[in-house]
């Protein structure tokens, strides 16, 4: 799924400029880091991709969808093709890991038999087969994030967005999560990760977009590769 930002600015209420004239293209199958200090506009950039926010000016295009003409139905359909993962996992605490994954499939109108099968397969793929009947509070941080990732990829999205996915995890666990994201990317899914922590990004040598105060300052430099 192709993502394009054309001269996109986002100004929140009270005149806070979150993004300033961003031009950006993310190709199908890419793995991209969005990097920068907190408040640089990383989260806003992701929100514009899954259309939780809309640009104040400019246009965001995600696959066949354009920020200029999105109905509520279009937004729902877009989100079935774009998985999103957050720092705080966003799991439903009174549903098991399996049910948390199943909810994405159910919301997309899949049949019960397919939901059961697919949810089990996806949980297996993130290494949580044995914990599938556990409630989120009984899972470790890393396991919760794996469950959230399983939910995000349950519908085989073309694009996976991750907003500080390892922000709440210890370094070893974070390593595992990044490996999982790499695996997902290898299977053809475009992955965009917003992070302020460069330690892991450096190891992976992927495209890096740096934001500062809402402006795109560098694009394409591979971390750890000398210019």
């Amino acid at each position: 799924m192709l993502v394009e930002f054309e001269n996109v600015s986002k100004i929140y209420e009270h005149g806070i400029i979150a993004l300033d004239s961003i031009n950006l293209v993310i190709d199908k199958g890419e793995f991209v880091f969005i990097h920068g200090p907190s408040g640089a506009g990383k989260t806003t950039l992701l929100k514009l991709i899954y259309m939780d926010e809309f640009p104040t000016s400019g246009e965001v295009r995600v696959g066949e969808y354009s920020s200029g003409k999105m109905s509520r139905k279009d937004i729902a359909m877009l989100r079935r093709k774009v998985g999103v993962v957050f720092q705080d996992f966003r799991l439903i605490s009174d549903l098991t890991a399996l049910e948390n994954v199943a909810i994405a499939l159910r919301a997309a109108g899949k049949k019960p038999e397919e939901i059961r099968k697919r949810a089990n397969i996806v949980l297996h793929s993130v290494g949580l087969s044995t914990k599938r009947h556990q409630l989120p509070p009984k899972l470790s941080g890393g396991e919760q994030q794996r469950t959230a990732i399983a939910r995000a990829i349950a519908l085989r999205p073309a694009l996976l967005l991750a907003d500080e996915p390892t922000g709440n995890l210890d370094p070893d666990t974070a390593l595992g999560i990044f490996d999982l994201l790499i695996d997902i990317n290898r299977s053809g899914t475009t992955v965009v990760v917003a992070t302020h922590d460069l330690r892991h990004a450096e190891r992976l040598r992927k495209r890096m977009i740096r934001l500062e105060e809402g402006k795109l300052v560098t694009d394409g430099g591979m971390i750890g590769v000398s210019p």
């Binding site: 729902a76 079935r80 994405a104 997309a108």
Partner: peptide, 9 residues
């Protein structure tokens, strides 16, 4: 969460 995973209204 339902909105996030693409549930319709």
């Amino acid at each position: 969460i339902l909105k996030l995973v693409g549930a319709t209204d």
